[in-house]
Design a protein around this nucleic acid. Structure first.
Lengths: 152, 152
DNA sequence: TCCAACAGTAGGAGTACACCAATGATTGGC
DNA sequence: GCCAATCATTGGTGTACTCCTACTGTTGGA
């Protein structure tokens, strides 16, 4: 009875938006159980991936407003997951580093993410998943620069 | 420290969420230029796809709160895109029908949606698009019933 | 005939998100 | 040494969403 109008399901982008939002919501839910939000995961991952960097860089990389990045790092810093210290070379900047606990937390959260992914992708076989990943990656990379700030 | 830093793009679900949200935002933008929102499109499509029906049915089908559906239909009705008349068989219900103008509007909006889709999927070849559509459709159908109300 | 259940409506609450403006500290170029 | 530009931070704004509650009609069964 709750069938979606065929008009909409014929749009690939509709399916993309829906399934994406579903995955996102599921992960957000599990992160919330650990008092985390999606941005926290993204931020930790960015730090692990690109090393210590200034808040400005971090904000730009994640396309977050600098003021929001400050708040995010307050939260992560308060839990000891990141360390903030003034850049001795330029004391305006704050160098953000992932702590040991930060690495550990990131690993945990990524495990959660993998679990969610396993659920969401369960209808697909392993080779199909790789295929999907490849296709999406190409879309993602072409996603390009209409940079409004945005989602984690 | 053998660990390669976990990257977000290695998560298929991350790509899914990102690209989906991108597509969604692009469409929303174009609809906004015509004073429409995504729910309007979904609602019109549902009416076209499943024929005249009560507001309750419509709300359930789209997973919108009934009170919000009332507001949506106010807007669509005010523009002459849907007609609302009491069901003579059960005067509590209101039967919602797509008008001529409603069909026309739906066609226009679907054209917009197709245009957006063409942009978003531009990195893929035609057979790849069909492939992607098939995979997503399977994810979508398995998406299943954890029905919180939600997104258009 | 009465009443519990249901359909639709109006108004508003709560939340999450992206954004902005003002402030203080610091820098580099002149 | 001075000044415009830069970085971080604070506090607050606007806007969508989603949800809830109370109220009006209406129905079908006891």
């Amino acid at each position: 009875m709750t069938s979606t109008p065929p008009t909409l399901t014929s749009l690939t982008t509709y399916l993309l938006a829906k399934t994406g939002r579903n995955a996102r919501a599921r992960l957000a839910e599990r992160l919330a159980a650990r008092e985390f939000r999606l941005w926290h995961l993204s931020t930790l991952a960015a730090l692990a991936g690109s090393g210590p960097q200034s808040q400005r860089e971090l904000a730009q990389r994640l396309a977050v407003h600098p003021s929001d990045m400050a708040k995010l790092l307050d939260e992560l810093g308060g839990r000891g997951l990141v360390a903030r210290e003034r850049d001795p070379a330029d004391r305006r900047r704050v160098l953000v580093t992932l702590t040991e606990d930060g690495h550990a937390a990131l690993a945990e959260l990524m495990t959660e993410a993998a679990a969610v992914q396993d659920t969401v992708l369960s209808p697909l076989t392993a080779p199909e998943r790789t295929l999907l990943h490849g296709l999406l990656l190409r879309l993602y990379n072409a996603d390009d620069p209409g940079k409004r700030n945005g989602q984690p």
